[in-house]
């Protein structure tokens, strides 16, 4: 942004040197905490996420490119509030929050309230985001992230994050969020609702995919028409959920 001179801030504070913000960990209760300086690359290589948070594990290698992932951070990406950003969708699907810290102490802001619009977040001018918090799963976490990009490092034409918590054969909680199909990250709540409190079936997967497509507000551009993008939301939602259903069946 600064190199293209879209932004020329008078003052810039570098938080990279603040000690002990580079962590990501899972608390005893299953809450996941990601510090503000934890890099995408750390999450990509994390041994924790594969089992404890598969949606995040799926998204981490798809953010930007491998070198950019060495410097970029999850918290920074959410703060950037780019509608084409991957992490904001993943965090929204997971009902995650951002912890902001300022002179008046810490406060927690749900990611869906944190992202106000394109490149706008809810931080006050004297606050910094110090941590992203993914709440304790209500069951066995499962999910995925799919992104249509034409090459590594491309912005998402469309991205879909799906996160469910399984309780026995039921879906205990579900979250679906969409990347790059609206002025900001979109929470496809109606689609998620369709899945909650019942087992995954081909039928409710189809309905959820349809509702997710309806929730999208895409615009036509050089990456694709609005219709096409809506179709991608449908396909990706369906593919992630069908994959989960299949692995469930295989396990059984």
């Amino acid at each position: 942004m600064m190199k293209l001179r879209f932004a020329s801030p008078e003052m810039l504070v570098d938080i990279n040197e603040i000690p002990d913000l580079d962590y990501h960990r899972v608390d005893d209760d299953g809450t996941i905490r990601v510090g503000a300086v934890c890099r995408h690359a750390d999450l990509e290589r994390s041994s924790l996420l594969d089992t404890r948070q598969p949606t995040m594990a799926a998204a981490a290698p798809l953010v930007a490119d491998p070198i950019v992932r060495m410097r970029g951070t999850l918290v920074g990406s959410v703060c950037h509030a780019d509608p084409q950003g991957d992490w904001a969708s993943v965090m929204t699907a997971l009902d995650a929050s951002i912890i902001a810290q300022g002179p008046n102490g810490r406060r927690s802001i749900a990611v869906r309230d944190f992202v106000l619009g394109p490149f706008q977040n809810a931080l006050a001018f004297d606050e910094i985001a110090v941590e992203a918090v993914v709440p304790t799963p209500r069951g066995m976490p499962a999910g995925g992230y799919l992104k249509l990009e034409r090459r590594v490092g491309d912005y998402a034409t469309v991205g879909v994050a799906v996160a469910i918590d399984r309780v026995g054969s039921q879906v205990g909680r579900a979250g679906i969020a969409l990347t790059a199909v609206g002025p900001a990250t979109i929470a496809a709540d109606a689609a998620a609702q369709k899945l909650t409190g019942r087992p995954l079936t081909a039928d409710n997967i189809g309905e959820a995919a349809e509702l997710a497509a309806e929730a999208a507000q895409p615009k036509s551009d050089h990456r694709g028409s609005a219709d096409f993008k809506r179709q991608m939301v449908r396909v990706f939602t369906s593919r992630i959920l069908t994959g989960l259903l299949r692995s469930e069946e295989e396990a059984a």
Binding site: K3, L4, I67, R71, G153
Partner: peptide
């Protein structure tokens, strides 16, 4: 100008970094 090409990649503390973006 957009951190895409990687021609400026160097190692900072052993990690590869696009030095135009730091």
């Amino acid at each position: 100008d957009t951190s895409n090409c990687g021609a400026c990649t160097v190692l900072v503390d052993g990690r590869p970094v696009k030095s135009c973006t730091m």
